[in-house]
Design a protein around this nucleic acid. Structure first.
Lengths: 336, 336
DNA sequence: CTGAAAGCGCTTACAG
DNA sequence: CTGAAAGCGCTTACAG
């Protein structure tokens, strides 16, 4: 056994009475190796508690068996949004099955995205899944330059050909939400959008406006937010001041909707009696608010799993032909 | 240059006109190497865009320059708690400076913690920071067995000698919260605890009960929760049913408190008029509720940074002598 | 189906 | 301060 107490493939081979090459093949389960040798190697591995040395393997295979999850957000609060939490879980779960390790890359506080670029260009990961991408992080270009297999959770806001992603049809979702409010009685509908440097925010806003226009309602009352509760509250309060006649509010996320609800409560407006509210995400938050949220589905876990599988596919040399777009559903609960 | 287009140390050495050994020393910035050679290596590195191969380095140094963040939770919703989000950010930030990569290890859904054990015992990481640890994950024992340098964010619930951790003094924090309610007028105080398989929940509950006893109040009205909003709501509703005379509620976290607030609103109880509420964490949530929360500080980011530095110190062979315990403060806002 | 040999890209005694 | 050489622990043609 090696000096430091950890068994090497050499030890396994010796104990099993085979060559290192055969031991290597048996350990990895790649043909061809006789049943008898397979068995003795298996036994030797168990007895020695052998675990392959990742670095040694990586050095020759030129793969790191590492996928980076890139969260180009300077602010950790992003995690507090259940959508992103689900997203991270989706990546981790999918990669568990393939024995890839998941490296977490965040944007440094106050810093830019250079560190991300260095990491990616350093070939430290085989592939990357990008979560929560904003226009000015320039991730699509950076990734294109590095040539690393990648997929985005959510459409990249910069259109780059060949860039893979998985997304929900946010525009259709927005349309559904708006048309629902319109067809069930709301006459004056305002919207609290997400940050317009993110594709999801842009697409939902477009969908809302389309839906309201289709229903013959004014679609010009909207405010740009940032997916946080605090901003949503402030904007909702402002809406009530500036447009007291509003009887419906479209929120860019469930977290946004919960902020809207708080503002409505504080102003003494009943929900859904006076003002009806529709969220987006169908996250656990939708069940925790009072009343529970009518919202649009946006399955973060599945989207992340799909994006991860895209990266895995690219690594296998069989890239996906097209983005994965999931159709959203409207879930009606108490808020509208 | 290497066949695959990436420069190796060999290429750098050749271009700089030095040996590989000298190039290696210059790249790492370890003495001794002459100024002239330092400069030519620097130039060669820049020209070739050289980045050291992590695997090759790791193979000889026997370090991976990787720290694992272990989140032994089967449920990704844990991330949605701003405290944990802050904690992850604290680790990532601290490790940015040292060029360690951060591997994210979660417990598999429905599965146990064997995968975590395999990973740790496989020497894939140099050290580990544990976040959100429960009694039955057996992480302290597992880590003891593997011998890997580790630190917990939050006191491990199983007392193991030499185990390092950073925590806030949860008991003192609980006491402060309870005594504050008692000395400012609450007569019947109930508590919504966290899950009692976590040390933070146990310690806060003890602190509350001590504080209430010190003030001569009944300290037997408490319910075990799980740090989620939904459970907190249900328990608060139950408290109002079973103990309608309650005029103060101690919540195990800000998220818990927000659930309590929702239940109180739904029941038509004014806060702080009828019932006063104190949270724990002083997270962003405390500013988002209505009214904003009176709460106890629990700086997740700093605790995580401290735990991370403990691991780093252990890797340098200078382990911390004792756990880091931060003193909490009570922050008075609108809810009590 | 199997093994001897080369080689992945580094770091680190060692000798000078 | 510098360089030649060994070696970290694997995988992979290649030949048999």
């Amino acid at each position: 056994m090696a000096g430091n107490g950890r068994a090497t493939l050499e030890d396994v081979a010796r104990l099993a009475g085979v060559s290192r090459a055969t031991a290597s093949r048996a350990v990895r389960g790649v043909a061809p190796v006789s049943e008898a040798n397979q068995e003795s190697v298996r036994r030797a591995v168990a007895e020695l508690g052998y675990v392959p040395n990742r670095a040694a393997r990586s050095l020759v295979t030129r793969r790191t068996d590492t996928i980076a999850v890139v969260v180009p957000e300077p602010d950790s609060r992003i995690f507090s949004d259940p959508f992103f939490a689900a997203t991270v879980a989706g990546v981790v779960e999918t990669l568990e099955e393939t024995a890839h390790q998941v490296v977490l890359l965040m944007r440094s506080r106050g810093g830019g995205t250079e560190r991300l670029a260095d990491y990616l260009e350093g070939n430290h990961a085989d592939g990357v899944v990008v979560i929560s991408h904003h226009r000015e992080d320039h991730l699509p270009a950076m990734i294109g330059r590095s040539g690393i297999p990648a997929a985005f959770v959510g459409r990249p806001i910069t259109t780059v050909p060949s860039l893979q992603y998985a997304d929900v049809d946010n525009r259709a979702g927005g349309r559904m939400a708006a048309e629902y409010l319109a067809t069930t009685g709301s006459r004056t509908v305002a919207a609290v959008a997400g940050p317009l440097d993110m594709a999801a925010a842009v697409d939902r806003l477009e969908g809302w406006r389309e839906g309201l226009a289709n229903a013959g309602l004014d679609n010009t009352i909207w405010y740009e937010g940032d997916f946080t509760v605090a901003t949503a509250r402030a904007l909702a309060a402002r809406i009530l001041r500036e447009r007291p006649e509003v009887d419906g509010i479209l929120a860019a996320s469930d977290l946004t909707a919960s902020g809207v609800l708080t503002a409505l409560h504080a102003a003494g407006r009943a929900v859904p009696g006076d003002v009806r509210v529709v969220g987006f995400d169908d996250s656990p938050v939708a069940l925790e608010t009072d009343p529970p949220l009518t919202t649009v589905t946006n399955p973060g876990r599945e989207l992340a799993a799909a994006a991860t599988r895209m990266v895995l596919a690219a690594l296998d040399g069989r890239p996906f032909p097209a983005p994965v777009i999931l159709q959203p559903r409207l879930v009606v609960r108490g808020s509208a």
